[in-house]
Design a binder for these strands. Structure first.
Lengths: 145, 145
DNA sequence: GTTTCATGTAACTTTTAATGTTACATATTG
DNA sequence: CAATATGTAACATTAAAAGTTACATGAAAC
């Protein structure tokens, strides 16, 4: 996987977990389906675990599973748990902040970014994991063994 | 300048142009103040020129100037002219789109991104170059010779 | 017209963040 | 204790942005 957002990776993994209720999926199995690496999966799902969205268990028959129903997981929950940034950063060079113009630009941009984050979060809250899952399932998809 | 957004660079340059009405500023002079390179300035302002926000003139006493009053330049105008992305990209790996889940995730994310772009553009439209400039000028700033 | 100065732009290098990889410690099941 | 999975550190790779160099093009001043 070259350049997809961690958010997309997370959602893809979560749909797989939702599709296999009661069965823990390993990082390795998910990595194969997501066309990425097991460590990358652990890094992403590790954040979701800290956010209480998924559970992880070690040992034989261990792996990842949803911590609560897909209906109760919004994209905002996932976004927040990951500390993900949907907005690109706009800070200026630290050596440049002695300039009053730079400070004003930074301040205006910060106000904008703060507003934008709130707007985005509100929009993300409107979509739930179950919305993605039901659409994907309606079309059929390969299950993990 | 290590990692600031092109949008910040553009706004910084535009405020300088606004502060020196009737006088064209060169890429080299702006680069010094923006703590970056003249070619970077030309690349950014070149897009604004195509968007009708600034004018460029060659030869002695040439350089960059605003194409219209700062009151008539919104952050949205600048954003649009630059084809800038405030949102990080979320596409999945092209080799992965045979998976129905990936396609559903991508579709949901695309809907979200489209909505988000509209929200951000509307928010950007509320701030004008003159808003940034008047704040910066109230605090004083170094003029370019 | 020639000199000077500025933009326009191509080609290349450097830098940075994200991602991928390897290796191994830790914990859990049976 | 053997097998298996997460957790994580350390390092390598990759891709995008920015920086740099070099030079062609065009406009003003003399």
């Amino acid at each position: 996987m070259k350049r997809s957002s961690r958010l997309s990776i997370a959602l893809h993994a979560l749909v797989h977990l939702h599709a296999q209720p009661g069965k823990a999926l390993t990082s390795a199995a998910l990595a194969t389906c997501l066309m990425t690496n097991a460590v990358v999966v652990r890094r992403v799902l590790g954040e979701l675990r800290e956010g209480g969205i998924v559970d992880a268990s070690k040992g034989p028959n261990g792996g990842w599973s949803l911590a609560r129903p897909a209906e109760d997981i919004s994209l905002r929950d996932v976004y927040t748990a990951m500390g993900e940034r949907l907005l690109v950063r706009t800070e200026s060079d630290p050596g440049d902040v002695t300039c009053a113009i730079v400070r004003s630009v930074d301040r205006v941009m910060k106000e904008f970014i703060d507003d934008a984050e709130a707007l985005l979060a509100a929009r993300l809250a409107r979509t739930r994991l179950s919305d993605i899952a039901s659409e994907a399932m309606a079309k059929g998809f390969p299950r993990l063994g």
